[in-house]
Computed example of a mutant assay.
Amino acid sequence: MTLDRLSGLAVAGLGLALLLFVIPDQVEAVDYGWVRPETLPSLAAAALLLLGLMQAATGRGGGGPDRRATARALLYLGYTAAAVWAMGRLGFVWVAPVMVLVLMLWLGERRPLWLAVGAGAVPAAVWVVVAGLLGRGLPG
């Protein structure tokens, strides 16, 4: 079995675990708002399940993992964990714009307009969807 097939099965397993255990256990049922809180996470988890199964069925790559890409992915995972921790301590409004800006710079974006739009508009859009449309609070 190739690595891309294994990674597809791992992603599909994650999507299934989210659908069966995490989302039902961690998302509160509410009787207000026009979008139920579990709708978007369930759609994302179903996409992970479906796309993971597609990758497992059609994968044909060979060889071992790219060490540089693996190290970069682990660094990104650590960065994301640190950002989530900081959001819990300092709040979404303060951490999210900085997090997005650092991520954009890390990925090589250098155009000031795009940096400003990304660091301002993306967190604002998340806030509008979560706080405004779903009526849920964000950290901090």
Rank of each mutant, 00 (worst) to 15 (best):
F92H: 00
W127S: 03
L115H: 12
G33L: 03
D31A: 11
L51T: 13
R68D: 14
W34E: 13
A96N: 04
M99E: 01
E28W: 07
M54Y: 06
G64P: 15
A116H: 10
L20I: 10
A124I: 06
E38A: 15
V84W: 14
R110S: 10
R89E: 06
V102I: 02
W34K: 11
F21D: 12
L103F: 10
T70K: 09
M99I: 00
D66M: 10
V100K: 00
L134P: 03
D31G: 14
L105V: 04
Y76D: 15
G88W: 08
G64L: 07
W94E: 13
G15F: 01
V130W: 04
V100I: 06
L49Y: 01
L19I: 15
G64K: 15
A17E: 05
M54C: 03
G120Y: 04
L113R: 14
R5T: 02
V129K: 04
R68V: 07
R5L: 06
S7T: 03
W34M: 14
A83E: 08
L90F: 14
P123A: 08
W34N: 07
V98M: 06
R5I: 13
V128E: 04
R136C: 13
L48H: 01
R111K: 14
V129M: 01
A131R: 10
V35F: 08
G135R: 12
M99S: 05
G137I: 00
S42W: 03
P65F: 10
Y76Q: 15
R110E: 09
V117R: 10
V84A: 12
L16C: 13
L105H: 00
D25I: 00
L18H: 05
P65K: 07
D25K: 07
A124T: 14
T80P: 11
G62D: 01
V102K: 07
Y76C: 11
R36D: 12
L75C: 15
A47V: 03
Q55F: 01
Y79T: 07
R68Y: 04
G61L: 09
D66P: 07
G137R: 15
L115G: 11
V122R: 11
W34Y: 10
A56F: 02
G135L: 12
A29G: 11
M99A: 06
L9N: 00
T80S: 09
R111E: 08
R89V: 11
V35K: 00
T39I: 05
P112M: 10
L3E: 04
R89G: 00
V30T: 14
G88A: 09
V117E: 07
A12C: 09
G13L: 02
V102L: 06
A17F: 05
G61M: 03
A10R: 02
R110N: 00
L74A: 10
T2P: 05
E109Q: 14
L113W: 09
L16T: 11
W85Y: 10
V22L: 06
A45M: 02
T80V: 12
R67D: 15
V98H: 04
L133D: 14
P112L: 13
A44T: 07
Q26D: 03
A124C: 12
A96K: 00
A82M: 12
V122P: 08
L19F: 01
L50V: 14
A131V: 06
R110L: 02
A116S: 13
